[in-house]
Design a protein around this nucleic acid. Structure first.
Lengths: 209, 209
DNA sequence: CGGACAATGACCCATTTGGGGCATTTTTTA
DNA sequence: TAAAAAATGCCCCAAATGGGTCATTGTCCG
């Protein structure tokens, strides 16, 4: 970003929308929009040369999806923000896009002023998205209520998630391996699992550790 | 919520701020704020009786923290939204609050109009938070670039994360346990781990599965 | 005071796992 | 088309794991 100028690119297969967006952004002070592509493949081929500040990426592209393209471009252009363009609000794919590395998303019918504002917000470190998606994202953060593990058990479960074995755990908390075994047996009973992998999986997925 | 009335509660140890917030909210049309507590313990004891629509929760409370209180209240009051109150913007604890179940947060010096707007946004399914925090939340969603596992290897790694053992995996993909072993050996080599727990841990934490 | 539970530890034993090597066939890629 | 990689499979073996039972000690709560 030179000065305040935000250099953008568009990846959108619908010619009308693509040109409209390019027009809106391109003639707004403080923005340029020199790059517009109609496919993810083309964008991935060309964008690393131009290295824009921000990419508007259609989610539903023919061929490689916008989500897959986002995942790839994030690696190629680590300093470039990507905002997804979606038609419908509540799409699961919006959520997947964030996982793939998008910084936010906006609806295609977003009015010009809000569009520019979202781009500014993204480049200033924000994450423009609708209230519904924001809540969904936050919700998936919540840790589930964890079973009634004792202090010791929680401690040991955390160590199992680090990959520690009986011996290592025992040495770390100054007890015998037999004790560790006993605790782990109780953990398994409480979590209703029968293997280390299962216990670790449950613990991490539910954000208990 | 009866009609459009939003019944709020406040948990804040600073008397001045508590009363100020209560005043602002209480005399705004469409809001009530009958409950105000100066400690998490008190709130947890009293709030299940009154069941407000939304709780404003100070993050830094003496005794039980606002984060811990949030975790507990989420269980007691599943239909109540919780918004955190923080002094500083970028606090890590804000992030932890979202993990504990908060729906968003706002700064204590938020002007009255924005405060009410944030409460409305929360109750209408949103997640009011600053751009910086939103981005941080989104960023922690990103899956890391995963090592070059083959299709088969990815498939088996996912099964390990479900707790499957050699035998189960082998039966599921119609190969011998020896083959499964061979694949798992390759997975371990590529992930640079030496146990199932470690592999599962890395895979889930990095959102490869 | 007695029961419940947590933490500690031991023993036994079958099964699983991890690591090493080696070989064949198929698929992919240069 | 030749080389590389992937997928399949087998052998061996030491170490780790999971599950069972039992015992002791201390703490906490009714």
């Amino acid at each position: 970003m030179q000065g305040n100028l935000i250099r953008t690119a568009i990846v959108e297969d619908d010619q009308e929308i693509r040109q409209l967006l390019q027009l809106i952004i391109g003639r707004s002070p403080g923005f340029t929009c020199e790059y517009a592509f109609e496919s993810a493949e083309e964008a991935i081929r060309e964008l690393p040369k131009s290295r824009p500040d921000l990419i508007l990426m259609d989610i539903n592209l023919p061929g490689m999806s916008g989500i897959e393209a986002t995942a790839q471009l994030r690696v190629l252009l680590p300093n470039t923000d990507i905002l997804m363009l979606s038609v419908n609000e509540d799409d699961d794919s919006v959520f997947d896009s964030l996982c793939a590395g998008a910084s936010g998303y906006l609806l295609k019918e977003t009015p010009p002023a809000a569009l520019l504002e979202a781009i500014r917000e993204a480049k200033s470190g924000g994450a423009p998205m609708s209230a519904q998606i924001a809540r969904k994202v936050v919700r998936s953060f919540r840790q589930q209520t964890k079973p009634d593990l004792t202090e010791r058990e929680s401690e040991i479960l955390a160590m199992l998630c680090r990959g520690d074995n009986y011996r290592t755990v025992a040495d770390a908390i100054f007890v015998s391996t037999n004790t560790v075994k006993a605790h782990i047996k109780n953990i398994y009973r409480k979590l209703e699992v029968h293997s280390r992998a299962e216990a670790v999986s449950r613990a991490i997925r539910n954000k208990w550790v």
